[in-house]
Amino acid sequence: MMQAPNIGEVVMHHTADAYSFGLGEAFPSLNLHWERWPDLHLGPLVVNLTPTKHVVFLVLAAGLVFLTMWVAGRKLEQQRAGERAPSGFANAVEAMVLFVRDEIAIANIGHGGEKFAPYIMTLFFFILYSNLLGLLPHGSTPTGNLAVTGALAITAFLTIEISGFLTLGPGGYLRTIFPTIPGLSGPAGLAMSLAMGPIELIGKLVKPFALAVRLFGNMTAGHFVILSLFGLIFLFGHLPLVPRWGIGIVTSGLVLGIMLLEIFVALLQAYVFALLTSVFIGLMQHEH
């Protein structure tokens, strides 16, 4: 008879970051633990630059994205040189890259979207691979970490605001904070413009905040559900054979369903992050 573990602890432990990495009991020699570096104090902020498990998976995701694109690029070059019809893996990657470039970046940013396409494409595939890595056994989801999604959202924020500033100029950019109110002029319009300032500023900050929290929440929630469902098996491990196995089978079926859903969510959230970033860039670029 098994002793039921603390499911909450397991769930939190599995979704949290750690200073360790490994493939569990199957490969004990690959289980690594490392020491935490000393904290850095930057004013009121305490920063610890020790690479964590999520950093390892970030690097892994970036490496896999690069490998995918590099191999696809080489294959495409070979196919083009041989004047053969594009086929297989390379063609699939090309189609996906083109979808992100044309349907996400250029379609939503509008005129001049090609400039931003490399950023959006990198964002999409980096987030996608990070999301999917968490679905592998012993994997971890870097995008299930608020610091990672926050950092990505800040790149989006800076891209949106700086590109907006460069396109609109100082005056045009100021109007995105203090908008001219249609139908109001003179002192009343000025007062309304000033009153709108804080709201517009909050709006600017809420967009990346929502991006960060949405991605983090979606990635973390799936793992919570899967781990909680698995927890049921251990929770009822003391039951007699038939209900124990019944619960095990039903739970595994449910987990399989959630896992399939998670693959979809991984794609969807990468799409949503890239799409919304493109939309926000486009809104700023064509602000009048």
């Binding site: 750690a18 870097p142 926050g150």
Partner: peptide, 28 residues
């Protein structure tokens, strides 16, 4: 070690930017 996924480790901002910008430049 941060034990819950809700803790924000500011060091990861740095790593995310390093990895993301490196990937962006290499892919470009």
């Amino acid at each position: 070690a941060p034990a819950t996924p809700f803790e924000v480790n500011f060091g990861l901002f740095f790593w995310t930017w390093v990895v993301f910008i490196a990937l962006f430049l290499v892919l470009r």
